[in-house]
Write a protein that binds this DNA or RNA. Structure first.
Length: 173
DNA sequence: ACGATGATGAAC
DNA sequence: TTCATCATCGTA
């Protein structure tokens, strides 16, 4: 009996670092022209709360980061460097700004590369992860041992002072 | 090592 | 309205 469970709000409405870690080994699924493309998540980063200087939410709510302040299980997709779409899933309670950036899937390293490959754009921004939005995450029963998880500081956030050093990036060895 | 490329947010 | 900045990537 193969496990194939679509993750919903209760999974994401928890501590951001916990969700980030547990997303490793889960499957990112995108519907493209009637086909479901599923790829295992191999690299993520947590952006957690008001204090986190690396987070878009650090300076308060704006038009762009609004999804981060909303309910868990919603996509937060934004454009960076004028050309790369970044895919995040909102975590934590409503009103508490947090999200997990999906940086890599099996066979594709890099947040900009994976969105380009899976045709993920800002059209998915602020939509609920699920069949309706054509983009969701599944638990397919893959069990990840803690020994396989590497923790490092986050990429591209050197401006964030002490927050840049926190081990908020998780990847499969 | 560097330029591409455009949205964002803060300053003016 | 202008300006610096940016959760990156491909080419050199």
């Amino acid at each position: 009996m193969n496990i194939r469970k679509i993750l919903s709000q209760n999974f994401f409405e928890r501590d951001t670092l916990t969700v980030a870690r547990e997303l490793l080994g889960k499957y990112l699924v995108k519907k493209i022209r009637g086909n479901e493309i599923a790829m295992m998540i191999t690299e993520v980063e947590a952006y957690d709360g008001f204090e986190d200087k690396a987070s878009h939410a650090h300076k308060g709510e704006t038009a762009r980061n609004k999804p981060m302040f909303g309910k868990a299980g919603v996509w937060y997709v934004y454009l960076v460097y004028g050309m790369h779409e970044m895919l995040n899933i909102v975590t934590g309670r409503k009103g508490y700004p947090a999200a997990v950036l999906i940086r890599g899937v099996e066979g594709i390293a890099g947040p900009g590369r994976l969105t380009k490959f899976l045709k993920i754009t800002r059209a998915q921004n602020n939509t609920l992860a699920g069949r309706k939005s054509g983009l969701w995450i599944e638990d397919r029963g893959v069990v990840i041992n803690n020994k396989r998880i590497k923790k490092t500081s986050r990429i591209g956030v050197l401006y964030a002072g002490v927050w840049a050093k926190k081990k908020y990036r998780f990847l499969l060895k």
